[in-house]
């Protein structure tokens, strides 16, 4: 696989092993082959996007990285170590924020859950949660329950909870798929900023080609039935990106064509 042109974040220099490595991964679930001979690497600090038709195992791929699922054959590694199960280093933002938040806890309580897991004292938790709420633009909404928040705000709570873990790897499963266009654009820019600040390696699954190009350093295109790697494109667009300017650049449009043709072909 061609690794030229990967933009590597500063943290990468200390660490030679790729943040995420798939090595000949195959997964059979319920007698069906979901993923077949999948091999790729994601460098530390890289923002990698995964696109592909439904049924290509995008979500399954994230579950393999998170350790919620184990491959039938092959190996998934994080920073050189084989994935054996979930770890505090890895956070996952689920698409269905409504199901992933605890409805009986306020926004503050939901974010604090991540800190309770690592055994922080109540005082430290309050300070850290306050900072996180501010970071995701929810200052002043900490006392609200998920049911009292809009979809975009609920997703922000989930993102804040993941950031509270201070993960080295951030997995996102179509996190903005259920949001309206404006909220979606605002959150795209925010997640790009938050990820850059945290230095986390990100694997971002989406069905939206524009979103993948807009956010990613690289885009992995998958084929369906069974899920396998079809194409990898490097996104060489300057950062910070801008919703209008970036999307009007010839390079953006060219990449969009490449990806679109690919998806058309496989569909």
């Amino acid at each position: 696989m061609n690794h030229a042109g990967i933009r590597v974040a500063p943290v990468a220099k200390a660490c030679v092993d790729p943040a995420i490595a798939f090595d000949g991964v195959r997964l059979d679930l319920g007698g069906r082959r979901v993923i077949d001979s999948l091999s790729f690497d994601v460098a530390p600090g890289e923002f990698a996007c995964v696109v592909g038709p439904s049924g290509c195992g995008k979500t399954t791929l994230l579950r393999l990285v998170s350790g919620l699922l184990a491959p039938s054959t092959g190996e998934v590694r994080r920073f050189g170590a084989t994935v054996k199960g979930p770890s505090c280093d890895v956070a996952i933002v689920f698409q269905d924020y409504g199901r992933a938040l605890l409805p009986w806890r306020t926004a503050t309580g939901n974010i604090a859950l991540a800190l309770e897991a690592i055994g922080l004292s109540r005082r430290e938790r309050t300070a850290r949660v306050g900072a996180l709420l501010e970071k995701v633009g929810l200052a002043g909404h900490g006392d609200k329950y998920p049911a009292q928040l809009s979809g975009g705000m609920q997703q922000r709570v989930q993102i804040a909870r993941c950031l509270a873990q201070e993960p080295r790897v951030l997995l996102m499963d179509e996190p903005f798929g259920a949001l309206d266009a404006l909220t979606r654009q605002a959150l795209q820019d925010e997640i790009a900023r938050l990820v850059k600040d945290s230095g986390a390696t990100t694997l971002f699954v989406t069905h939206d080609l524009d979103e993948a190009i807009y956010l990613g350093d690289r885009v992995f295109a998958l084929d369906a039935n069974p899920g396998r790697l079809a194409d990898v494109i490097d996104v060489d667009l300057p950062r910070p990106r801008h919703q209008l300017i970036t999307r009007e650049q010839p390079e953006f449009l060219r990449l969009r064509h490449v990806l679109f043709d690919h998806v058309q072909k496989t569909h």
Binding site: L68, G85, A91, R99, A100, L102, I118, Q165
Partner: peptide, 14 residues
Amino acid sequence: VDVRLFEVARMLGL
């Protein structure tokens, strides 16, 4: 209880 909540708990290392 939604299995998703248990997944969240496992990911947080509870």
